[in-house]
Write a protein that binds this DNA or RNA. Structure first.
Lengths: 196, 196
DNA sequence: TTATCACTTGAACGATCGTTCAAGTAAACC
DNA sequence: GGTTTACTTGAACGATCGTTCAAGTGATAA
């Protein structure tokens, strides 16, 4: 094995994150990984197979970070910092403001079945991560007892998705920070009744 | 002029809305419009030129609908119904739940300069539409006087963007409806201080 | 020593991409 | 009637796409 596996996946992650699945051509991939097509196909079967590994690697990483938030002394503070870090990175890492998974969802129909399944499953993994954070906040008394955890988790993930798209278009961070503040306020705020 | 211009644009809108800019190939377009490549290029210069017109047509339509919301007797109620209509359409029109502009933003880097400019300008037009709605709500006493209109407009648009992505993945509408309820609650809720 | 295995190379393949162009058509203007 | 204008056709172009494959390489097992 000439090339290190983790190193390959990370380089591929950067490329797919920047360009998306479709726009990252095999020749881009060959260049980014410094590998010839035969090697890539022998290892990963196809472009889609490589992408699937990238998605899984990314989701695993993200889930780990969400877990750290849930386990923090103050999960609510940690959540704030998590949002801040993810959404206001330096300009040369602007592409990282967009979630790789969200970006993939936008082109879900162009992706094959295998990778599509990996994307959707990863989104559900992260939703579970957000739910753990909500529950940790309640346990630590940072959110009211009656907060509907399932709904709040879906809402929180959705806010994160929306904010990543928002942050991507912002030139400066002040507006993004205000949006994060609003998220924290609304998290503590009212929730709709289940019966409609 | 053999083919009706508006009819062409609407057919093209449907295709781009369903498939996105990149995935909608020229041969798909030729089939959808029942036109040969030469005709299309003589009229619209390029695929991008056609897409630009589609985006502008779509934005104009959307802005008109936002204007109707702002001019309603109860803008807040009209806003609720606007969200509901946009996000819970029938399954065969599921693609319409995603905003064409948001979908385009996801592939902004793959689109040429001309169409990209049209997309970004359209987003700003719609932001102005959301601001008008906020101001109408305040004027009618449906939102507190001290609501920060610029921030609230950005926030509302962002909620809309996020919810469209959310609704796209939902199998049933109950979760989406709850999210809309939450948006209305948060709109009436607290806002972060400008100084940070 | 030989066989097997997991990779590696780089030329080449067929398919599809957006686009061009010579040629035709029908209405409008001089 | 002739010219111009605004389309229209459909074959064909070069570029790029993801992928394949015959031929190597070097480590491991028998």
């Amino acid at each position: 094995m000439k090339y290190d596996h983790d190193d390959i996946i990370e380089k591929a992650t950067t490329l797919f994150w920047q360009r998306g699945f479709h726009a990252a051509g095999m020749r881009d991939i060959q260049q980014a990984l410094d590998m010839r097509p035969g090697s890539i196909y022998a290892r990963f079967q196809s472009k889609e197979g490589l992408f699937k590994l990238v998605v899984e690697h990314y989701a695993q990483n993200s889930a780990e970070r969400l877990k750290q938030v849930a386990e923090a002394a103050s999960p609510l503070d940690a959540l704030y910092r998590f949002f801040e870090t993810a959404l206001t990175g330096p300009d040369e890492q602007r592409y990282m403001r967009q979630c790789l998974l969200v970006k993939s969802i936008a082109e879900l129909e162009l992706i094959g079945d295998i990778a599509r399944k990996a994307v959707i499953e990863s989104m559900q993994t992260l939703k579970a991560g957000f739910k753990d954070i909500i529950e940790a906040c309640i346990e630590k008394g940072e959110l009211p007892e009656h907060t509907p955890t399932k709904l709040a988790a879906e809402w929180l993930q959705n806010q994160f998705v929306g904010l990543r798209a928002f942050a991507l278009m912002q030139d400066e961070n002040t507006a993004t920070i205000q949006m994060i503040d609003k998220v924290i306020l609304d998290l503590k705020g009212q929730w709709p009744q289940k019966t409609h």
